[in-house]
């Protein structure tokens, strides 16, 4: 399709049937509602380019007025479109732990003066969102089951709202595997140019089923995101690197084994183990500094109503026509009564 057809194709009308009336717009070229002054011969009128230009202008104004009214009544609009642009940023899929322990503070207590882990991550992630204009964010929560909070979007207000909601009281347990699968699914199947970031915010880990592990490996190999694990460690709980005292099984040290699983994926991976709100914000700044690649992003233009523009064009044409009408002169304007009848009477007398 030619570019012109493509351009036309992006426009539409509520009542396209009315557009069949558009040929009426040619009527002003045939006749004008102006007072016609008969003159014995137009050859007597000197040629005047200004008048000819004015006639063309008035004709065009008439066409514009009729066309604007017809189009305005038909209800024109421009289709919403997705425009691909390039900016600096990344596709960031946030996977946020909503298990009950997130409501505790970093000291493992119920929040009182100290803010809870969820509230801290909410505050810091909220600052992270919107610091760069072209980042795309998706938010997924997970506890026992994953929750799709927000699909991949560049509407940072919505993202911030989603993040504000993560300090609601959390639920049961931690099921990382299915959460990861959904967070990966948040990356669209689009082009591979974008830098993709999977940001896992959790305060604990769980065993991932080996079968789920296989599908996760496949998904990671396909999406190839940069994986960041923000491990909000409660004071005193085992860290990522801590080997358990007893048997080294996933059940005994899920954090360590999740870390090992992430390392084995073959994607760029970093784990942060902040032990307080300041450490969390430092980790976030670090992530922000790392992800500075050009990203193609899609801007959605909403459908735009063009009725106003059509009526404005019609109004412009009508104003020109009215000015022309008001400027009309009358060659046959009534004059003082002619002296002819009186003279004839005098002669007769």
């Amino acid at each position: 399709m030619s570019p012109l057809l493509g351009l036309i194709g992006r426009y539409g009308a509520e009542r396209p049937g009315l557009l069949w009336l558009l040929p009426l717009a040619l009527l002003p070229l045939l006749a004008a509602p102006r007072r016609r002054t008969p003159l014995p011969s137009l050859a007597a009128v000197p040629t005047d380019p200004l008048s000819r230009g004015l006639a063309a202008l008035l004709g065009a104004a008439g066409c514009l007025a009729v066309a604007g009214l017809v189009v305005g009544i038909a209800g024109p609009y421009r289709e919403g479109a997705e425009v691909k642009r390039t900016g600096i940023g990344a596709e960031i899929s946030m996977l946020i732990d909503r298990s009950g322990s997130m409501n505790e503070t970093f000291a493992g207590r119920q929040p009182s003066a100290e803010e809870s882990k969820a509230a801290a991550s909410r505050r810091i992630l909220g600052e992270f969102v919107g610091s760069r204009a072209h980042d795309l964010f998706a938010v997924t929560g997970f506890s026992t089951a994953p929750m799709l909070v927000l699909p991949m979007t560049d509407r940072h207000d919505a993202v911030r709202a989603a993040i504000r909601a993560i300090d609601r009281p959390g639920l049961d347990y931690t099921n990382v595997g299915r959460g990861l699968a959904m967070a990966l699914a948040q990356f669209g199947s689009g082009t591979g140019h974008a830098s993709r970031v999977l940001l896992l915010v959790s305060d604990g880990a769980a065993v991932i089923d080996p079968r789920v592990q296989d599908s996760l490996r496949a998904a990671f190999a396909k999406m190839r995101p940069n994986l960041y694990w923000l491990f909000l460690r409660t004071k005193g709980s085992p860290g990522i690197a801590d080997r358990p005292a007893g048997e080294d099984t996933p059940q005994a040290a899920p954090e360590r084994h999740l870390d090992l699983f992430f390392r084995s994926l073959g994607v760029p991976y970093r784990a942060f183990e902040p032990e307080g709100p300041e450490a969390v914000s430092a980790a976030i700044r670090q992530i922000e500094g790392l992800e500075r690649d050009p990203i193609p992003y899609i801007e959605r233009r909403p459908r735009r109503d063009l009725t106003g523009a059509a009526y404005a064009a019609a109004l412009l044409g009508l104003v020109i026509l009215i000015v022309g009408k008001l400027a009309e002169a009358d060659l046959r304007r009534p004059q003082a009564p002619a002296a002819a009848p009186a003279a004839e009477r005098r002669i007769a007398a």
Binding site: A32, R34, R35, R36, T37, P38, L39, P40, S41, L42, A43, V45, D48, L50, S51, R52, L54, A55, L58, G324, A327, E328, A329, D330, L331, Q335
Partner: peptide, 23 residues
């Protein structure tokens, strides 16, 4: 008695069409 100012749409009586003139 032609007007000094104004728009006149003149019509030829012998059928030579009309012409708009800005006086």
């Amino acid at each position: 008695d032609l007007p000094e100012w104004g728009l006149l749409e003149l019509e030829d009586l012998e059928g030579a069409g009309t012409r708009l003139v800005l006086m």
